[in-house]
Amino acid sequence: MSVPLSHVLILASVLFAMGLGCVVAWRANVIMMLIGIEIMLNAVMLTFVGGSAHWGIADGQLFALMIMALTSAEVSLALAMVVYLHRRKGSVNTDDFDSMKG
């Protein structure tokens, strides 16, 4: 198996950028923004796993695992907030949440 690390990194960056693009583009829907964040974090995991394989040590994979856990914590809290705010304001469009500005 001879995939250069750079190819893994490029794939990761494509994924990362797609996730970022998703977050930026889907301003109308928090859920889709969260999905974008998931994609970005997956790209990070890919980088770690790639690095781990490249150097032959387990640390990267560990990091990836922790990111997974972190993501689930984050997502659950975020979704709780979404539900809470949907109850209060009846919208999931982040642009509606602009009572503070300036």
Partner: peptide
Amino acid sequence: GRWSTGRVSIYIV
């Protein structure tokens, strides 16, 4: 200060 539009999308961009 008007940059802080209150819209998180702008913030993220």
